[in-house]
C-alpha cells in the first residue's frame, strides 16, 4: 500500500486540483454564439470543488479515527522501496531516453533492474531480461512493424 491520507486531506487535494483547473480555464477565450471552450473545464473544476467540500465535511467527523497521513510500512523496507524506485525511475528513463539509447538498451535495463529489485537472482534476471527483449522486439518490430527506436544501434537497423 502507499501513502494513505485522511479524507480531509484528500478533500483538500481534490479541491486544489479543482481550483487549479478553474484558474487556468479563466484564460480560455470566449467564442461569440457558442458556449466556448471554457465551459466544460469550469464544470469539471466546479465538480471537483463540490466533491472536495463533501470529502472534507465527511472526513471531519472521523478525523480522530484515522491519522492525517499514514506513511506506508514499505518505507522502512529497503526491498520494497527499491522496487518502487526502479519502476518509477525505470519508466521515466525509458520515456526520456529510449529514442537516444534505443530499445535494446532500455528494455533489458528496465526488466533486469526490476527483476533484481523483486529479489530474482541475478543469474536468472540477466538471461530473462535479454530473452524478453529479443522476443518482444521480434514480435513487435519484425512481426507487427512497430517502430521500436534503434537509438545507438541505428546503423544496425533491419
Amino acid at each position: 500500500m502507499t501513502v494513505r491520507v485522511n479524507d480531509v486531506v484528500s478533500g483538500v487535494l481534490v479541491g486544489a486540483l479543482g481550483i487549479a483547473a478553474l484558474t487556468i480555464a479563466q484564460s480560455f477565450p470566449e467564442i461569440p454564439g457558442e458556449p466556448g471552450p471554457a465551459l466544460f473545464p469550469r464544470l469539471a473544476g466546479a465538480g471537483l470543488l463540490v466533491v472536495a467540500v463533501a470529502l472534507v465535511l465527511g472526513g471531519w467527523g472521523g478525523r480522530n479515527a484515522a491519522p492525517w497521513v499514514e506513511w506506508p510500512e514499505w518505507f522502512s523496507h529497503p526491498r520494497c522501496f527499491a522496487a518502487v524506485v526502479v519502476i518509477v525511475a525505470g519508466l521515466a528513463i525509458t520515456a526520456l531516453y529510449v529514442e537516444t539509447l534505443g530499445f535494446f538498451i532500455c528494455a533489458p535495463l528496465l526488466v533486469g533492474a526490476l527483476l533484481v529489485a523483486l529479489s530474482v537472482r541475478v543469474a536468472v534476471a540477466i538471461p530473462v531480461a535479454l530473452i524478453a527483449t529479443a522476443v518482444v522486439h521480434a514480435i513487435f518490430y519484425s512481426g507487427l512493424r512497430v517502430a521500436l527506436p534503434w537509438g545507438l544501434f541505428e546503423r544496425f537497423a533491419w
Partner: peptide, 26 residues
C-alpha cells in the same frame, strides 16, 4: 516476481505503439 517485470515491458511497448510516442510512456 518474474512475471510482473515482463508485463511491465509489454505495457511499455503497448503504450508506445499506439502513437509511436515516448510521451505516452510518461
Amino acid at each position: 516476481n518474474v512475471l510482473m517485470p515482463l508485463i511491465l515491458l509489454f505495457c511499455t511497448v503497448g503504450a508506445f505503439a499506439i502513437n509511436n510516442s515516448v510521451f505516452d510512456i510518461g
